Amino acid sequence: NITAAIYDEIQQEMKRAKVSQALFAKVAANKSQGWLCELLRWKENPSPENRTLWENLCTIRRFLNLPQHERDVIY
Rank of each mutant, 00 (worst) to 15 (best):
E44P: 10
E49S: 06
L64E: 00
W54A: 04
I2T: 07
W54K: 06
E9L: 12
T3I: 01
I2R: 05
L53D: 13
Y7R: 08
R16D: 07
A5T: 15
A28E: 01
K31N: 07
S47I: 07
T59L: 11
V27Y: 15
E13D: 07
L57Y: 01
A5S: 15
K26P: 02
C37K: 13
P46I: 15
A17Q: 09
A5K: 15
A17G: 12
A28T: 06
W54V: 15
E70K: 08
E9K: 14
N50Y: 13
C37G: 09
C58Y: 04
K15L: 13
E9C: 07
D8H: 10
M14P: 01
W42E: 12
T3Q: 06
W54L: 10
N50Q: 09
H69I: 15
Q33A: 04
Q11F: 09
A17N: 10
E38F: 12
P48G: 10
E49I: 06
L66A: 07
D72H: 05
S20V: 09
P67V: 10
V27E: 14
A4Y: 15
K15S: 07
C58I: 10
N1K: 02
L64P: 00
C58E: 10
N30K: 13
Y75P: 01
E49W: 06
Q21C: 06
F24D: 00
E44L: 04
S47N: 00
Q11P: 09
Q21D: 02
E49C: 03
Y7I: 10
I2L: 10
E9D: 11
Y7E: 01
E49N: 02
V19Y: 01
Q12H: 04
R62I: 06
A25N: 02
Q21K: 09
A4R: 14
Q12V: 04
F63E: 00
L36R: 00
M14Y: 15
Q68D: 07
E44H: 15
R71M: 03
Q11T: 03
K43R: 10
E70V: 00
Y75V: 01
L66T: 12
L64M: 08
C37S: 13
N65Y: 05
N30A: 04
P46R: 02
W42N: 15
A22H: 02
P48A: 11
Y75G: 00
F63P: 00
N56P: 13
S20I: 03
K43E: 07
V73G: 15
L40Q: 02
R41Q: 14
H69A: 14
N65L: 07
L36A: 03
